[in-house]
Nucleic acid binder design. Structure first.
Lengths: 134, 134
DNA sequence: AAATAAGTTAACGTTTACGTAAACGTTAAT
DNA sequence: ATTAACGTTTACGTAAACGTTAACTTATTT
């Protein structure tokens, strides 16, 4: 059992390569709610860590912290009416995500096409102009 | 032949559901370079329009305008050395895009898992509590 | 040609997501 | 018991990506 169950703010900051300020900011806007020691220092549970990980994934994908909040909060709804609302919202998000994957595939195709053209162009140029020595 | 070849700023703004200000801003930072009429008003060619489309796709995908600039500029390199640099850069971008697709798939799985759990939970609650009429 | 609509630049305002610094308390190491 | 090293709050600063308003010019409509 190598898994730690508690983390300090700088441990998490280092692990995820972000600043402590960023983590504090996420708490400030209610994205994280770590416990505190008697000395008032933050202690992050494994759940907190998992949540942070999710937040950062969302960020890499270009979601705003508001959008991320809406997604991570899906984990803790409990009232039936809220569950129904959340399900609807979640389905919308899922569609968006699928669209996004599609758009990324298109972008990928575009870049691949450019790549081909550049390689062609380069061949021509090198052919015409003779080799420049390294 | 239904295709227009020139557009005004508000036509494009309407078509893509953005503000004219946004388009002007993109010109301001050099992402677009429309021609002008004698009266100094912007006229956008089909190329300009295509470019704007690309920019907006990049935005939806969460890229910064700087990143987008680097990508759209790949279209117009011509010097051999620049082509080589661009190719390297493009390959990096392609890898990033593939990673991004992976992460989106993961996010999708997460959301699907939450969805399942919510549906289960809802079934339980509705079962226990009897049906509330609409 | 007069009015209305659309476009222009310039400049200041706003939101998001933190960075940075000050001033101070807590924990760990020597 | 002192230092470091690390942590805390408060508050002001900042970059990106526009929004908003003003003051003015150009196009279009009637």
């Amino acid at each position: 059992m190598k898994e730690k169950k508690e983390y300090t703010i700088s441990e998490l900051a280092k692990e995820f390569d972000i600043s402590p300020r960023t983590i504090r900011y996420y708490e400030e806007i209610g994205l994280l709610s770590p416990k505190r020691t008697k000395g008032n220092q933050r202690i992050f549970s494994r759940k907190d860590r998992a949540r942070l990980k999710l937040i950062l994934r969302g960020k890499r994908l270009g979601f705003s912290l508001e959008e991320i909040r809406e997604m991570v909060e899906m984990y803790e709804v409990s009232e039936p009416e809220q569950i129904r609302v959340t399900l609807k919202y979640g389905d919308k998000r899922l569609k968006e995500i699928e669209e996004r994957i599609q758009e990324l595939e298109m972008l990928k195709e575009d870049l691949l096409a450019i790549r081909e053209r550049l390689i062609e162009r380069l061949k021509e140029l090198e052919g015409k102009e003779g080799k420049k020595e390294k």
